[in-house]
Nucleic acid binder design. Structure first.
Lengths: 178, 178
DNA sequence: GCTGAAAGGGTGACAAA
DNA sequence: TTTGTCACCCTTTCAGC
């Protein structure tokens, strides 16, 4: 609470216009700058300049297509809590995690487990094989798996593929961009 | 294993070219059709037709910008296991989940918990407030939270905002598109 | 799936507020 | 400092093949 009276702490130069531009791009990353400009009340050129700045600032990290994993044959999804022997160094954990392409997200967490993995596989059989590989890793002591039964936000099974993304512009960008 | 000798069961008409086009779009959703065509050995027109078909088939569900939530002031992330009273109907759970914009993903799962929620908040204080709101919902009996400490796949905190997405084109799209 | 042509978007330089 | 206009070139899009 030093320079501005915004509702959240954000990047210094990030105004309402930027917020609406990001919202438009989250909703449709292939929209033209002119289209976005018309929606937010700016010229296409001005929109492009702001987008370039936000990319340089690391606010926007990229543009990606969202796909339905089930359409690609990846119909099985699970979350796996990992319990490690002794103090598991996050640095080492990260290396291990990178060796299994089926792990689509992984993080260290508070609570009983040391890490939480988000895994996608082609089938339950495939998932079992992945789990065996993970449990065979040096300092993994125990795992607790939860298979995903149904998505409560996108019942159709609409999911995607991109660096660490989740949801946002559903019904108008309620989540991250209010 | 009926018509083709592909490695996984996928949508009927989905070949190697489609796979590479999707991979290109996941890596950069704003790439031009000509660029993609040059990369996969097709004309831009042919690429567009395939993309249009895949959108119609629901393989590609959209295009979105990926952002760093922390840059937008959403620096706190947690997973919340929800235990319900009696048989919690997924239909009702979905309604509840939609009332809290901080819930960026939610699913029913196997194991002890009935549902798993992925929550993003501006701060630990904000998260606590969200948790109180969730626990006040009618048939929520108990919750178990795990605060995310660090991302093991994108250490920089690079995350995103889009309908149900996660990772894929990191270092060449190892995950969903091998 | 390719080619060609018309419409429209991306991008940089320049001037103005 | 940020925006708008303009000009150039590339992309998109839709024929017809």
């Amino acid at each position: 609470m030093s320079t501005k009276a915004t509702t959240h702490a954000t990047t210094p130069q990030f105004d309402e216009l930027d917020r609406r531009i990001v919202a438009a791009l989250v909703e449709n990353a292939r929209a033209s700058f002119n289209e976005i400009g018309a929606a937010v009340g700016l010229s296409g050129t001005a929109v492009k300049r702001r987008v370039d700045r936000m990319r340089a600032d690391g606010v926007i990290t990229g543009f990606t297509a969202t796909v339905r994993p089930s359409a690609l044959g990846w119909g099985t999804e699970a979350y796996v809590e990992v319990y490690c022997d002794g103090a598991a160094p996050p640095r080492r954990l990260a290396e291990v995690v990178r060796n299994h392409p089926e792990i689509v997200a992984a993080m260290t967490v508070t609570g009983g487990a040391d890490a939480l993995l988000h895994v996608r596989a082609a089938s339950v059989q495939h998932f079992e094989e992945v789990l065996e590989r993970i449990r065979a890793e040096p300092f993994v002591r125990r795992t607790v798996s939860s298979l995903v039964l149904s998505d409560l936000l996108a019942p159709g099974g609409e999911h995607a593929a991109a660096p660490g993304t989740d949801r946002a512009a559903r019904g108008g960008g309620a989540a991250l961009l209010r």
